[in-house]
Every structure is written in C-alpha cells, then in structure tokens.
C-alpha cells in the first residue's frame, strides 16, 4: 500500500476529509487496486450497517414509548406552559359557587348566540365560533372569550378549550366546532375570572380527549392556517 492508512481511507468513506486530503486519497486509490478493493469493502460495510438499522427509524414508534412522552406532556408541562389555568383554579369555593349559580343563567342568557344545536349536537356559533377559528392562545388580548389549550384528539382532529361566560372544550368537525363540554365559565370581567371552578373539569375533558402533546404556539398557528383540518 501507499502512505494512505486505514484511518484516511475510512475518513474518506465517512466524508470527514477536507478537499486536499480527499483528492490525495482518491488519487492513491486510483493507482492502487488493493487500496481500491479495501475502499470498496469499507463503503459497502457502511452501507450495509446503515441499511440494516434504517428500518427501525422508519417503522412506527411503539405505543409504550409514545405513552412515556404523552403521560409526561399531559401531566407536568401544563403547569409550566399554561399557568393561566392554575391561577383560575385558585378561586375560593364561595366565589366559585356564585359563578356556578350565575353561570347557568348566562349559558342561555347573556351569550345567546354562542352555542346552538345542530342535528342534536352542540355547536359553537357567533363570538365563540369566531374565537375558536381565529384566536391564538399565544397572542390573544383580553377579550370576552379566551382560548386555553389546543391539541389533537384521539382519532384525529383539533380541539381547543375556551373560557369566558362559558368554559369548555370544542372540537373541529366538518365545517365548524362541536362543543364537547360547556360549563359556566370564569366570565369576562376580572371580578369573576378568578372564581371559575370550571377549569378542573375542563382539564379532565382535555385529558380524556388528547392524543399526543399539547400544541405549542407554532403548531397552533400552523393548524389555524390550515383551517383546523
């Protein structure tokens, strides 16, 4: 062999040589059949190893591994990433029951157009539908309706939690939003906001529906851009 050692040869195969050295090794290989044969061996070894394990990265991830991440995503980070929810949970019991009492009235009263029924299911309308369609949790201002969490549900499809006069979860179905849950919400004025007791129940619904992790700001935005389809 020439002065080209094994390390140089495999560095060529691994794409680790700079231009000058690459040329030098290639010239040596062209002039030395034994070296060329060795290079071929190394190339096919790399290809065979890579090819052997490649299918592992292409097959679907087993459920048990996915579950490790999902459990973690639905339990811990909610507190980290959505502190709003925690604050809402801190309301006193008296204030909470006050809102509950008022809330039922509101459900049918102050926002008559927010939830309607179509073919026997609750659907979002009016301001609620507009908020679900267009409002991003990451950028929303203090409005009458606040969007909480955005996530994909088991079986596919986007869902979002909301709070306002009514709190709950709605999932995108066909052309609109099917309301999965509607509870008296925290209300839009600050006096009532901290009194909401809806969030624990809303969270239970989110937990029951969610598939995978909660959408972060980027995914929320991307999903909205695609019309929640």
């Amino acid at each position: 062999m020439t002065d080209i050692d094994e390390a140089m040869l495999i560095a060529l195969v691994d794409g680790e040589l700079d231009e000058v050295n690459r040329r030098r090794v290639e010239r040596a290989v062209a002039a030395d059949p034994a070296l060329a044969a060795r290079l071929t061996q190394h190339r096919s070894l790399r290809a065979r190893l890579a090819g052997h394990y490649a299918p592992v990265a292409q097959e679907p991830v087993p459920d048990r591994l996915r579950a490790v991440l999902e459990e973690s995503a639905t339990v811990t980070p909610l507190v980290r990433t959505a502190p709003r929810w925690r604050n809402w949970a801190m309301g006193g019991a008296i204030a909470a029951s006050l809102v509950l009492g008022l809330g039922l009235g509101r459900l049918s009263g102050t926002e008559p157009g927010s939830i309607g029924t179509r073919d026997g299911v609750m659907v979002a309308q009016g301001a609620l539908a507009t908020a679900l369609d267009g409002q991003l949790a990451s950028t929303q201002a203090d409005g009458p309706i606040r969007i909480g969490l955005t996530f994909q549900r088991k079986g596919g499809g986007w869902c979002r939690s909301f709070d306002g006069a009514i709190a709950g979860v709605a999932c995108h179905e066909g052309e609109g939003w099917q309301v999965q849950q509607a509870l008296p919400g925290a209300g839009q004025n600050t006096a009532y906001r901290q009194a909401s007791s809806a969030d624990a129940r809303v969270m239970a619904t989110v937990d029951a529906l969610i598939d995978g992790a909660l959408a972060d700001a980027d995914r929320e935005k991307a999903a909205q851009a695609k019309g929640w389809r």
Binding site: V56, Q58, E59, V61, A73, A213
Partner: peptide, 21 residues
C-alpha cells in the same frame, strides 16, 4: 410540552441507536 414534542420527533432515531447498541 415542546420538550416532549421534540423528543417525539427524534424518537425514531433514538430507537435506531438503541437497536444498534
């Protein structure tokens, strides 16, 4: 949350590395 999402994205490669070890 995005930490889990990032882990999920590299999970196929992590599985491959684990398989080769």
């Amino acid at each position: 949350m995005s930490f889990e999402r990032d882990l999920l994205a590299i999970l196929p490669r992590l599985r491959r590395f684990a398989a080769s070890l």
